[in-house]
């Protein structure tokens, strides 16, 4: 097909730019932190393997291997998951203002996760902490319940009402906040520390275990979601239009809710609630290459990964030697962006 002149760049060019930025930003993420590690050392550590470590280099090697590398990997995965799930939810709701954290899906996930921590260790005699997998299951349950409630409330035959969607999101977030606070009240110190992670997105707890779980989820979704892109495009026309184009809309919606809830739940379980990534990234990509999900979803995942690694690097240097939770950085960027979108929408209607 002919090149579309209403678009700023082609999807191919966008992919090339993002693929060049990805390793650059990742290396930047490895360099920054309380201890600055120069590029040459990172390259020698990454390339040399086990044998070459000596002197001060061995300390840097530990920092990279135990702290920075898992953290950068976790940011990449969580950023990609959140951005792709944001794009998926926006397609499902047929509305570009849906974001997992804004509409309460993330809050639902964090209630699910907190309940598993508190009640799980109450039931488990001796307060043995449950593993990450159980907490993820709790987060998944919470995210599904929240998604279904919001979808039922906000979507009718005429499409989604933004007002209802955002208001339902506020209500669910408030409810989830109350539930999480109650759980915090019941929790002991150790649980409390873990619960507080979910309320403020935080990548400090990065571990290879979390990276593995995130990578597994991202891998599954990367296989499943591309099969839905054609149907997602047709869904943007409207539900009955999609039905007339031969799509089984009810099953499609169920699959989309499960996929997005899974992605959001796992990202909440391993990094807490990080707002606005799912809103900002797909929006920017749509402005650049258009709304076609075949390019929107993979490019959003790439750009989301880049954004979160960069935001996390920023979070580590702004008030160094202390660090900000990365959720604060994305909110600082995202909230004004969201307001700007609202103003644009008001101007249009």
């Amino acid at each position: 097909m002919k090149r579309l002149n209403t678009r700023l760049i082609t999807p191919q060019l966008c992919a090339v730019i993002l693929l060049i930025m990805l390793p650059l930003v990742s290396v930047l993420g490895l360099m920054t932190g309380p201890v600055f590690i120069p590029l040459s050392d990172i390259l020698s550590i990454m390339l040399a393997g086990d044998g070459a470590a000596n002197g001060s280099n061995s300390q840097e090697k530990l920092i990279i291997e135990i702290i920075r590398l898992p953290r950068v990997m976790l940011s990449l995965i969580v950023g990609a998951l959140l951005a792709a799930c944001g794009a998926l939810l926006q397609g499902l709701f047929r509305n570009p203002l849906a974001d997992p954290a804004l509409i309460g899906v993330s809050a639902g996930a964090s209630v699910g996760a907190s309940s598993v921590i508190v009640f799980g260790s109450m039931v488990n005699s001796g307060g043995v902490m449950l593993g990450l997998s159980a907490i993820s299951m709790g987060a998944f349950g919470g995210a599904i319940v929240a998604s279904v409630i919001i979808y039922r409330l906000a979507t009718g035959p005429q499409g989604t009402s933004v007002a209802t969607m955002l208001l339902a999101g506020i209500a669910i977030s408030a409810l989830a906040g109350a539930a999480t606070n109650t759980l915090s009240y019941l929790a002991d110190n150790d649980m409390l520390r873990r619960i507080s992670l979910w309320q403020m997105g935080n990548l400090q707890g990065a571990s290879w275990e979390r990276v593995g779980l995130g990578a597994l989820t991202a891998g599954c979704l990367a296989v499943l979601i591309p099969r839905e892109t054609g149907a997602l495009n047709a869904m943007l026309l409207g539900e009955s239009e999609a039905r007339h184009l031969g799509i089984n809309v009810e099953w499609l919606k169920r699959r989309l809710i499960i996929y997005s809830a899974l992605g959001v739940a796992i990202s909440v379980a391993i990094a807490g609630v990080i707002a606005f990534v799912g809103l900002m990234v797909p929006h920017l990509i749509r402005l650049l290459v258009g709304p076609d999900h075949r390019s929107l979803l993979p490019l959003s995942a790439l750009a989301g990964a880049i954004l979160l690694v960069a935001a996390d690097a920023l979070a580590r240097v702004v008030i160094a030697p202390a660090e900000l939770p990365v959720g604060i950085v994305t909110s600082l960027l995202g909230a004004p962006f969201f307001l700007w979108l609202l103003v644009l929408q008001r101007g249009r209607s």
Partner: peptide, 29 residues
């Protein structure tokens, strides 16, 4: 439904498309 869609098309009264597809992309759907 997937069989019927190959030979039956439906044009509704009005449509709500909020996403900036080009006209050509809409037809492609």
């Amino acid at each position: 439904q997937s069989e019927i869609a190959k030979f039956m098309a439906v044009l509704p009264q009005s449509s709500t498309l909020e996403f900036a597809f080009t006209a050509q992309e809409v037809v492609a759907l």
